[in-house]
């Protein structure tokens, strides 16, 4: 079937069988391999994308069900090749070790900051509670979100 998805501001068509998840469509049909597959079924958050402003799990979303919705993936965060402050902050704090949970973490964090630009550490931890990280113990990830939020606040 033809599946028309709006991803990172662009309308993209792909041919998929109905039993295609959004994650499969993004990764294998559209070449957006930034979103990762970790657990198969919604338990780890590595596949997190933002749909209509809210974090969502692309590995348990049926691609066809996402037609007409506004999807943002990790590839959509940087603007004109310049990393988003969150991406930069995560790099500075060392919040990405193996980097595999990182895209999902960033999408959850981005959705949080869009809704709540100055979250507390507890609010950050809560927003990231559906994203499993096996490398960092989360400390430097939470540091990064705090850092990005404080930097955004300092900007005029």
């Amino acid at each position: 079937m033809l599946c028309r998805l709006r991803v990172n501001g662009e309308t993209r068509d792909c041919a998929v069988v109905p039993h295609t998840t959004l994650l499969e469509a993004l990764r294998y049909a559209l070449g957006l391999t930034g979103s990762k597959q970790g657990c198969d079924k919604g338990d780890c958050g590595a596949c997190t994308v933002v749909i209509d402003g809210e974090s969502a799990l692309s590995c348990i979303s049926i691609a066809l069900a996402c037609e007409g919705r506004d999807i943002v993936t990790i590839e959509g965060l940087a603007r004109n090749g310049i990393p988003h402050p969150l991406q930069d902050a995560l790099d500075v704090t060392g919040g990405a070790q193996c980097g595999f949970c990182t895209p999902g973490i960033l999408m959850s964090a981005w959705a949080l900051l869009e809704r709540n630009p100055r979250p507390s550490r507890d609010e950050i931890a809560l927003a990231l509670s559906g994203n499993l990280c096996r490398c960092t113990g989360y400390t430097k990830i939470i540091d990064a979100v705090e850092l990005a939020a404080s930097q955004s606040a300092e900007r005029p």
């Binding site: 958050g45 997190t48 969502a56 959850s108 559906g130």
Partner: peptide, 9 residues
Amino acid sequence: VASPQIRNM
């Protein structure tokens, strides 16, 4: 319920 993403969906 579950996680933020699952509550959003």
